[in-house]
Amino acid sequence: MKKLIISIAALATLSYAGDIMKIDVKTTCDVKKNGVEKVLAVAKEYNPQAVKKGLEFKRLGVKNSAAIKAIEATVKAKKKEVVVEVKKKGKVKKQKFALDFATERACKFAVRALQQDVEADSTYRAAIPGDGYKY
């Protein structure tokens, strides 16, 4: 029984890894080709998984989840500029991004965080002296 559970879990992991690796971020996250809504939906689908696995990307103090929230608000308000609030040393600063650019990046960040983790399974040992790293 235990073996069966382990096998099912391993299969599920493999299928998840296969699915996420099939995504081509360049085309999937292309706002011009797919539109903001569709690309945003991809970001919203994958970023929570990245958060759950502790892999969420963060750039210039902005978590990808915060960026996604701000993009959603911008789309709702039918504006073209995304404003994200960033807390730094007790002060709140506003960062502004163009909607297309922010959406594309949020999508790429969400998917790549997960893909990078799958890739790491086969690449991390290449950095270890005495193992995969030769000098």
Binding site: R112, Q116, A120, T123, Y124, I128, Y133
Partner: peptide, 22 residues
């Protein structure tokens, strides 16, 4: 812990060893 250290992470695509080993 070892995997965490040597696995690439973040948008800069670095692992800890990029800076602190190599």
């Amino acid at each position: 812990g070892k995997r965490y250290y040597y696995a690439q992470r973040g948008y800069i695509k670095l692992n800890c060893a990029n800076c602190h080993v190599q």
